[in-house]
């Protein structure tokens, strides 16, 4: 394939991964921002969302679209509830101590993974997309007759992948409205800025934390439900989204929501675009090193303010 169409294809694919990544990382970012804890089990909530989506879709068995719609409502809710319970039962008891939280969430990671293996099994399971048309895309070329269009070999995207990008934008807008325009958002932001002060003003901080932890997990689950018709549910799938979300949250500037979205787009897209220039594994090496170097030379993240 020529350079131009290749780049376009890689960018389109990058946009799809960026969309899912933005949702997943947003969950982690909100949890980090408000609660100041590192949730290592975040990837497992992603995995749970995908596994539940498969389970719901195969239970319903009607038109794929029906299963999908039910899954995207139920799965994130269920995952959110599981996470909120985990917060109440475990994290609250250890007082959100940063290091103990890491161990506790690693424990949670093991438990969730093993539970998924025992119930869902070790195989990768597909979910039928609600709709999936292949859309061929044109590219331009200069011929003797001036600018012309042609359809390069393999340059295409599917309608479902476009839908994933659109859905992610809508949901992220919803989250932004929730954070900025509602009472719940106000309480969250207040807690984020000063936990003691909020408590003094009568904010039930414990309950807020449970909601926030649930919301963060639910966002990961939404990302998973969206991606599962493209990728497939598997009990070990949580690993990659966890690493990538971590990176996005740090690069975006800790707890900064716009920063998280910008970083997700940057990382999702660059992963695609770098792959145009290097062989696959080398592209991964370059992309990983690039992220490390950004942090080394701009440790506060892209959007964060310099440390005072």
């Amino acid at each position: 394939m020529e350079f131009g169409p290749h780049l376009l294809l890689a960018s389109l694919e990058g946009a799809v991964s960026a969309a899912v990544l933005a949702l997943t990382a947003m969950g982690l970012s909100i949890v980090f921002g408000v609660m100041r804890i590192v949730n290592v089990a975040h990837g497992e909530f992603f995995m749970l969302g995908a596994v539940l989506a498969w389970w719901i879709a195969s239970m319903i068995g009607a038109h794929p679209a029906v299963g999908f719609v039910v899954a995207i409502v139920i799965a994130p809710l269920a995952v959110g509830v599981i996470a909120a319970v985990a917060d109440k039962v475990i994290l609250q008891r250890i007082g959100y101590d940063p290091e103990r939280t890491i161990v506790a969430t690693i424990g949670l990671l093991y438990i969730l993974q093993q539970a998924a293996l025992m119930t869902f099994g070790p195989d990768a399971r597909p979910v039928t997309p609600p709709f999936n048309q292949r859309i061929d895309l044109p590219w331009f070329e200069f011929t003797k007759n001036g600018l012309g269009l042609f359809w390069p070999w393999g340059l295409s995207i599917t309608s479902y992948k476009l839908f994933v990008v659109l859905a992610a934008i809508l949901i992220l807008t919803g989250v932004w409205l929730l954070m900025t325009r509602t009472r719940f958002g106000l309480i969250m932001r207040a807690t984020q800025q000063d936990r003691e002060m909020s408590q003094a003003f009568g904010v039930p901080v414990d309950n807020v934390f449970a909601y926030v932890f649930g919301l963060g997990a639910a966002l990961a689950a939404i990302g998973a439900v969206l991606v599962v018709p493209v990728q497939q549910a598997h009990y070990l799938m949580g690993h990659d989204p966890l690493l990538l979300s971590f990176i996005v949250v740090i690069i975006g500037g800790l707890g900064s929501l716009p920063g998280t979205v910008i970083a997700a787009v940057l990382i999702g897209m660059s992963d695609g675009i770098i792959s145009v220039f290097f062989s696959p594994t080398l592209a991964k090496i370059v992309a990983t090193m690039a992220v490390a170097m950004v942090l080394v030379f701009r440790p506060q993240g892209l959007v964060g303010k310099a440390a005072s």
Binding site: H6, L9, S17, H239, P280
Partner: peptide
């Protein structure tokens, strides 16, 4: 085209 083991999406490699 040798794909790294952690890869989850592949379309961007097909133009090669």
């Amino acid at each position: 085209i040798a794909i790294p083991p952690t890869e989850t999406s592949f379309t961007r490699y097909f133009p090669r």
